[in-house]
Amino acid sequence: MTSANSLEPASPALDRASLRPDCGNCFALCCTAFGFSRSADFPVDKPAGSPCHNLAPDFSCTIHDTLRPRGFRGCTVFDCFGAGQNVSQGLFFGKSWIESPDTKSEMFAAFAAARQLHEMLWYLAEAQTRTFDPDASHRAAQLRNTIEQAVGGELSDVLSLDVQDLHSQVRLTLIEVSEEVRAAYLAAGDDHLESALKPGADLMGKNLRSRRLCGADLRGAYLIAADLRDSDLSGVDLLGADFRDARLDGADLLKALYVTQPQLNAAHGNHVTRLPADLKMPSHWQDA
Rank of each mutant, 00 (worst) to 15 (best):
A114C: 15
E119H: 05
D202R: 13
A83F: 08
G71Q: 10
L257H: 14
L218T: 06
T2F: 04
S11D: 12
F132M: 05
C23I: 09
P282S: 00
A4H: 09
T76R: 11
R182N: 05
F81M: 00
G215W: 02
M120D: 08
V272P: 03
V236H: 15
G84N: 09
V177N: 02
A48G: 06
K206P: 00
T66Y: 00
V151Q: 06
A127W: 09
D162A: 13
A267S: 14
D278Q: 04
A125S: 10
R209F: 00
Q128L: 11
T103W: 13
R247S: 00
Y222P: 08
L172M: 12
G94L: 10
W122Q: 10
A33N: 03
G235K: 06
G49I: 12
V259H: 04
F59L: 01
P12G: 05
V170N: 01
P199S: 07
P199G: 06
K280F: 12
T62C: 07
V77K: 03
D191W: 04
N145D: 12
A267Y: 01
Q149K: 14
L257Y: 14
F92W: 05
G152K: 01
A13L: 04
E154C: 07
M120K: 10
V259N: 08
S11K: 14
C214Y: 02
D157M: 12
L67P: 06
S6Q: 01
L264R: 05
S283Q: 14
S88Q: 03
D217Y: 05
C26I: 07
S195Q: 15
K255R: 15
C26H: 07
L264A: 10
E154P: 02
S210T: 05
L124A: 08
F243C: 03
M281K: 07
Q261P: 14
E194H: 15
Q116E: 13
A113K: 15
D22R: 11
I175L: 13
K95G: 03
E106H: 15
A150F: 04
N25P: 03
R130K: 13
D230Y: 14
S178F: 13
K206C: 11
T32A: 10
Q142S: 13
M107L: 03
T260V: 07
C61V: 06
V163Y: 14
H167M: 10
C52Q: 09
V170G: 01
A221R: 12
R68K: 14
C75R: 09
Q142A: 08
H53G: 02
A4D: 11
F92P: 07
D15W: 02
K206L: 05
A266Y: 07
W122V: 11
L67M: 07
D157Q: 11
D287E: 15
A109D: 15
Q89P: 00
A266H: 08
L228G: 11
G205L: 06
R219F: 11
Y185A: 01
D58W: 07
S39K: 00
L218W: 08
D162H: 06
P199F: 09
C75N: 11
A48Y: 03
L124C: 04
K104L: 10
R139A: 09
C61Q: 02
R219K: 08
V181N: 06
Q169D: 12
Q89A: 04
N54T: 01
F59H: 01
F92E: 10
S234M: 06
Q142E: 13
L275W: 03
A48R: 02
Q149S: 09
E154W: 11
